[in-house]
């Protein structure tokens, strides 16, 4: 199967995602320039981390105008799995493909460290190989990862089981003191109602091999492989 990783001007985790899909997982992978409109036969699309278009105006705000985004949206509308990592998550929010928005971390600082993240639901293409409530140790690296949604949207997210990852402690306990950025309900990642579009602030692609301090991120990529294999069976 094929992972297509979109490259925006300012993306910086594009090659990490490409590496995780190709060298770690052994799957086909392609880097797709944001001005292209062809996703190169993607089975899975990844919007990587970084600072697309310099994060001008707001994080992710300009990336939604990149020509490739119309193709990404059409791919998602057909049910294709799309994963937005960090800045890619912010792009999905600004593009209206996921609900809510990101604001500045509550303690202002850019936060860069390994954090425990609890997997809430395994019925998405990016958590299919996880165990429910499994704790993954993944790096975060962001200044604006403070997830916000109106009370109505937040309760809809919870009601429809769209919160997929929450900041927790290593035992999986979710509490305010384990929240690194002020996100409502400790939200680290969500999915759309159809469950094929997932966004998360932590970086699974930077934790796909033990040499990187954690190999827990590998399961996110392995999930996509497993989910697509079970679809085609």
């Amino acid at each position: 199967m094929k992972f297509s990783v979109v490259v925006f001007p300012g993306s910086n985790s594009d090659y990490d995602a490409f590496y995780a899909a190709s060298f770690v997982l052994g799957e086909d992978a392609a880097l797709v320039w944001h001005k292209d409109t062809d996703l190169q036969g993607a089975d899975v699309v990844i919007l990587p981390g970084g600072f697309a278009h310099g994060d001008y105006l707001r994080t992710g705000a300009i990336a939604r105008f990149s020509p490739i985004m119309a193709s990404v949206k059409a791919f998602a509308d057909r049910g294709g799995p799309v994963l937005g990592i960090c800045n890619g998550f912010q792009v999905l929010l600004e593009a209206g493909m996921l609900p809510g928005a990101m604001v500045r971390n509550d303690r202002i600082k850019f936060v860069s460290r390994l954090v425990p993240v609890r997997v809430e639901h395994t019925d998405t293409p990016f958590t299919a190989a996880c165990k429910s409530q499994q704790v993954l140790h993944l790096p975060i690296a962001h200044g604006e990862g403070n997830y916000y949604a109106s009370p109505e949207v937040l309760s809809e997210l919870e009601q429809h089981r769209q919160v997929i990852f929450r900041y927790a402690d290593p035992l999986g306990v979710v509490a305010p003191e384990h929240n690194p950025n002020g996100s409502l309900n400790n939200i680290a990642g969500i999915c759309n109602r159809q469950r094929n579009v997932v966004g998360l602030m932590p970086h699974p692609e930077r934790a796909a091999e033990a040499q990187l301090g954690s190999a827990d991120g590998r399961v996110i990529f392995a999930s996509a492989v497993q989910a697509l294999a079970s679809l085609s069976r």
Binding site: V103, D106, R107
Partner: peptide, 13 residues
């Protein structure tokens, strides 16, 4: 401006 319901950490600083 940020909506009144949204915490503005920069403004606070």
């Amino acid at each position: 401006t940020l909506k009144p319901s949204v915490f503005d950490p920069q403004g606070r600083v």
